[in-house]
Nucleic acid binder design. Structure first.
Length: 845
RNA sequence: GGGCGGUUAGCUCAGCUGGUCAGAGCGCCUGCCUUACAAGCAGGAGGUCCCCGGUUCGAGCCCGGGACCGCCCACCA
């Protein structure tokens, strides 16, 4: 425990590790599986990649989830934050491959079994990193129940799902066009592909007609793929080319006869209006090919080199083949045009290499039957997505869902439970009996296993106490970019296999951009490491800052918000110092209000408690965090603590102060857990951890509107007098004789006098030297020596002009028949009152 | 090509179902070591709420058009 009497600053670097230790030792974060999911509160963490390091997105998402978990834990719900990591097939495999390369070997050289062993070793060595980093943030995950998507029991769940879906015919094997990632030497799904703009050369190539009557000219940026052309297509409505339909062209360099077909896909206003059709290497051509029953030829292999079907070009890299093909065409005089052409090309999200569309034999999952229930879950409100706009994206995507390519040509992951023997295929949980079976070497898309996360982590397919206690979970908090990759698939799988939606609320958080608005990324050098920020400002500050930044849209990282959080932590630290250095530690528990300011702060406290609860329920974290800041600064410290300074710290005041402070610490704890835990521990008769204490609950009996109005007037009056003094240049320490000619200060005049440094006098013996308007009347200054009559006259004039303008505006409004007739009556009345008030003040001048 | 979001103080952002809504934090200026906090306190200056029309008694707020910025989806070889 740090020494409250000597230190004036909260020191996160010293306190945080010590406090985290206490939390972990307490076992608070681990709960036993009892009761039902409806009674309990649970969140399944989006499992970070086991290779990962904490980035800003994790930090924001961790803050969001932790504020929710801690809040509900303090509201006496058995709260479980399910923790774990994802095996992240491609990312992890690449990392280990790089390591092997450093050692001068490759995965091919050591073989599959040894390679997988290497990955496990790697995981053992580095896999705990991100978990430790979550602890730095103060995340109250259940660290005793850490899961991994390749755990034995998790693997069983994945296998069962695969086999069940296969048995139903929803998982099948097919020759199909896939996004081939030459970087990872694997097929990847559409969602793992991103577009990048490049400038290529658009070549126009002449294909002679078979009957020698002419030629068709086609345009392409991939001339090497012409070796796999099996047709030429024109639009049936294109009169220029109508005569070609049904005739035959000869493929240069190869000599193959190409039928000229008609298809609506061909644009008449692009290029020459004639399109070479390469079903083997273009997704659109593939579709056209299937429509017309065209031959599918592959000239580019999975190794990125030309295949035997490429004839003379076999063995060349794609780039070399392109050069060679262009050279040959030029030589034969068939190149009609070359022009630079800027367009977007698909690139692998993981490896960064350009996608090579090609046909291969892959495993697919038919989504047609799974999507409708997942759509219904959202449209019916069983799953609520926040913000609403994301729900539309979700539904739109599911409504046009396509088969999902689930096989990956990797070694790290869940290997398919599929065996082949000749023409036979066996799919099952156990290896088939008999001789000669060979297992499919492919593994499943990582997202296939992630889709089972909320229930596979809880022991499914067994009927476990964990599953009964925590499934469905309550909230899934995540980034927008994996709404389809992950969230939608969890809903589909949860409904199909766990019998219910996996969560009732999805919170889609902001993407944090760099302060200059660019993407935060390592390669751009725009990344900000949350751990550096924690080192600098403390975890509380970073959590507060991120929550205060969060929004329904993307936001720029705001260092100021983090500093605001740090200021808040420090303010609470010093406010607690002040209270503890003054109060009677033996004061009774509970509030003992004896004055109007006591009733005021207790009333304001009830409001901030209710507001904070409501804002958390609405996932409005920014308002919740900033509202707390405003309460602590703008009400508790700036006013209440200043108001009580003139009083004796008796048992009643001590009790009230301690009560307000305790409640404030407890309310703020889910947002800034470290500093509040530290201060809680220093409170008189502190018992147990704040993390395990009860959240404050608003009490209607403590609301006091009269007290709120009285103190609002005090604040208004003090502020007005201070402003006058400051502008007039009165020495801050000087006590000015004054008369308070205003209503509503019966029991608060001494407070105004002290905070505004006034010597209040009664009677009307003296003429005021200056008049300061305050709520309910005016403060009349009687000390002529501090008043500059000319300045006062100028101010009066300025004020008079202001009032005249406002009176004119109010009169104008009230003279407007439309306003009086159509505006709500109370508004019109308020306007009339305002006019009267303004006229009275004007008259007083 | 289709869809979504944004444009408010020097900076980053709040502004709920149109009526004290023109705000906060930071920055800036002035003054204070006032017995919790100088990483503090008090006070102050700063805005044609992107532009043009419209609806309304009344418009950052609603409608139409435009400009600029960002994101998502689908993609013309």
């Amino acid at each position: 425990m740090s020494d409250l009497t000597s230190k004036t600053r909260f020191e996160p670097a010293e306190a945080e590790p010590r406090i985290m230790e206490r939390w972990l030792a307490s076992g608070l974060f681990h709960v036993e599986p009892q009761g039902t999911a409806a009674e309990n509160y649970s969140i399944a963490i989006p499992p970070p990649n086991v290779t990962g390091a904490l980035h800003m997105g994790h930090a924001l998402n961790g803050s969001v989830q932790d504020v929710l978990i801690r809040h509900h834990r303090m509201r006496d719900r058995r709260s479980e934050w399910i923790l774990g990591t994802d095996h992240a097939g491609i990312a992890t495999q690449k990392q280990v491959e790089r390591r092997l390369l450093d050692r001068g070997t490759t995965r091919e050289a050591i073989g599959r079994e040894a390679f997988v062993e290497e990955v496990w070793k790697w995981r053992k060595e580095f896999g705990g990193q991100i978990i430790e980093q979550f602890k730095r943030l103060g995340a109250s995950c259940d660290y005793d129940r850490e899961r991994f998507t390749l755990d034995e029991s998790y693997h069983r769940a994945v296998m069962k799902v695969f086999v069940d879906l296969y048995d139903e015919g929803l998982i099948y094997r097919d020759h199909y066009m896939v996004n081939w990632d030459p970087g990872s030497r694997s097929a990847i799904s559409d969602l793992e592909v991103e577009d990048r703009e490049v400038t290529d050369t658009l070549y126009s190539i002449a294909y002679p007609l078979a009957d020698g009557s002419g030629e068709v000219v086609v345009a392409t940026v991939r001339p090497e793929t012409m070796l796999a052309d099996t047709a030429v297509a024109v639009n049936p409505a294109d009169e220029r080319h109508a005569h070609l339909i049904g005739r035959t062209a000869i493929l240069p360099l190869v000599g193959r006869e190409l039928p000229i077909i008609a298809d609506d896909y061909v644009k008449t206003d692009f290029g020459t209006g004639c399109l070479k059709i390469t079903p083997g290497h273009d997704p659109n051509d593939f579709e056209i090919g299937r429509r017309h029953g065209l031959q599918e030829i592959g000239v580019i292999g999975e190794d990125g080199r030309m295949t035997q079907d490429a004839g003379a070009y076999a063995g060349m890299t794609v780039a070399a083949a392109q050069e060679a093909v262009v050279a040959a065409l030029r030589e034969q005089g068939l190149l009609r045009a070359e022009e630079p052409y800027t367009h977007t090309v698909p690139v692998s999200h993981r490896s960064g290499e350009r996608i090579e569309p090609l046909i291969s034999l892959q495993w697919f999952m038919n989504m047609d039957g799974l999507a409708p229930p997942a759509i219904e879950a959202v449209t019916s409100g069983r799953v609520r997505i926040h913000p609403e706009s994301q729900a539309r994206r979700y539904v739109d995507w599911l409504e046009s869902i396509r088969p999902w390519c689930i096989s990956r040509q990797l070694w790290w992951g869940h290997q398919l439970p599929v065996w082949y023997r000749g023409e036979e295929t066996y799919v099952g949980l156990e290896e088939p009996g008999g001789e000669g079976w060979e297992r499919d070497p492919d593994v499943l898309d990582t997202w296939f296993s992630s889709a089972l996360w909320p229930f596979a982590t809880l022991g499914w397919p067994d009927d476990t106490p964990e599953l009964r206690a925590f499934y469905p979970t309550d909230v899934l908090s995540t980034a927008r970019d994996i709404l389809f990759l992950w969230v939608a698939r969890m809903v589909m799988m949860g409904l199909r296999f766990a019998g219910d939606v996996p969560f009732s609320d999805v919170y889609v958080h902001s993407v944090i951009q760099a302060p200059d608005g660019r993407r935060m990324s390592k390669s751009l050098g725009t990344g900000i490491d949350p751990l550096d920020e924690i080192d600098r400002h403390g975890a509380d500050a970073v959590r507060f800052g991120l929550l205060a930044m969060s929004s329904t849209q993307d936001v720029r990282y705001s260092p100021e918000k983090v500093e605001q959080g740090q200021a808040l932590a420090n303010k609470l630290f010093n406010a607690t110092r002040f209270v503890l250095l003054n109060v009677d530690p033996d004061a009774p528990a509970g509030p003992r209000p004896t004055t109007v300011e006591d009733r005021w702060i207790l009333s304001r406290l009830q409001r901030i408690i209710a507001d904070t609860h409501r804002r958390l329920d609405e996932f409005d974290f920014a308002k919740a965090a900033l509202g707390l800041y405003d309460f602590v600064y703008g009400e508790l410290c700036d006013w209440y603590l200043e108001l009580v300074k003139g009083r004796a710290f008796d048992a009643d005041l001590s009790a009230t102060l301690l009560h307000v402070l305790r409640e404030t610490l407890a309310l703020a704890h889910p947002f800034i857990p470290f500093v509040t835990e530290e201060l809680w521990d220093s409170m008189p008769r502190a018992e147990g951890l704040l993390a395990g204490a009860r959240a404050p609950v608003p009490e209607a009996a403590l609301l006091d509107e009269a007290a709120e109005a009285r103190i609002a007037a005090v604040i208004g009056a003090v502020t007005a007098v201070r402003s006058w003094r400051s502008v007039a240049g009165v020495p801050p320490g000087a006590r000015l004789p004054a008369r308070l000619s205003a209503a509503g200060y019966e029991d608060t005049a001494p407070l105004v006098a002290r905070l505004a440094r006034l010597q209040l006098e009664a009677g009307t013996a003296h003429e005021p030297a200056a008049t300061i308007p305050v709520p309910g009347g005016a403060v009349e200054l009687l000390a002529s020596d501090v008043v500059d009559p000319e300045a006062e006259a100028r101010k009066r004039d300025a004020r008079r002009h202001e009032l005249e303008a406002e009176v004119a505006r109010a009169e104008g409004r009230l003279a407007n028949a439309g306003f009086v007739a159509k505006a709500p009556a109370d508004l019109v009345d308020a306007e009339r009152e305002k006019l009267e008030r303004l006229r009275a003040e004007l008259a007083a001048l």
